[in-house]
């Protein structure tokens, strides 16, 4: 349950929504995944507005790190700070609200609802708040997907789906962007398109991307290995 301090902080952060991107911090984190895997993070900070690429081999905790930052995993102990808000003190509902309001997330796959059209998937970003169809179409145009706006996403290629997911993120104007291997199955041209879209969205946001894709390293000032984040 949310204590009074955390509630006050969330309220305060809502009031401060127009302010810039938040800093991110994971402190004294201990997490158990499955029966045997235990990970810990002593102190990991990402500055407000920073663009960070985290690389490393598969299975080393890159996705877990993103999910910790998004509040999709609650650690056994420790603190997850998104700006002034400690996620561990928020209820699940409040974490959902925070993600909807401040986060943009792209996954490696499974990004879209396949029974919806491209534009309807973009409109999902608004939650219950009705986004304008025009804004969704503009976002699709930014990733060069306007022509597919009424197509069922099930019929689109993975690269096209990733770009629609990017459009969904763009339209929400997030303050934190979390991207999980978004380019892993894309060709060169689509990597460029997607990264351009992410760059556009990342202006005024804190961007954390995990990837082992060498093609995108040059776009990041801070590149760190996942092994530098987790203590095992």
């Amino acid at each position: 349950m949310l204590d009074a301090t955390a509630a006050a902080k969330l309220t305060a952060s809502k009031r401060s929504a127009p302010l810039g991107p938040p800093s991110l911090r994971l402190k004294d984190i201990r997490i158990t995944l499955g029966k045997a895997l235990r990970l810990s993070i002593a102190d990991f900070k990402i500055a407000a507005g920073e663009r960070v690429l985290i690389h490393g081999p598969s299975g080393q905790g890159k996705t877990t790190l993103l999910h910790l930052l998004a509040g999709l995993i609650v650690p056994d102990c420790g603190e997850v700070w998104i700006g002034p808000t400690n996620l561990r003190q928020l209820s699940e509902r409040q974490r959902s609200q925070l993600r909807r309001r401040d986060f943009g997330i792209i996954f490696q796959s499974l990004n879209l609802l396949d029974h919806l059209t491209a534009v309807e998937n973009v409109l999902l970003a608004g939650g219950r708040t009705a986004l304008s169809r025009h804004a969704a179409l503009v976002a699709l145009a930014q990733v060069d997907m306007e022509a597919y706006s009424e197509d069922s996403t099930a019929s689109l290629s993975l690269g096209q789906q990733q770009r629609i997911a990017a459009a969904r993120m763009l339209v929400a104007e997030p303050k934190v962007i979390l991207a999980d291997e978004p380019t892993s199955s894309l060709d060169e041209a689509n990597v460029e398109l997607l990264m351009d879209a992410l760059d556009a969205a990342a202006k005024g946001a804190t961007l954390v991307m995990v990837s082992h894709d060498q093609r995108i390293r040059a776009r990041f000032r801070r590149v760190i290995s996942i092994n530098e984040v987790f203590n095992r």
């Binding site: 609200q97 909807r100 499974l110 609802l113």
Partner: peptide, 18 residues
Amino acid sequence: AMRGQLAVLRAIGYGRRE
């Protein structure tokens, strides 16, 4: 069949209640 998609929906901010 929709588990993954529902998880995405939850991840982008839709609450369990919604």
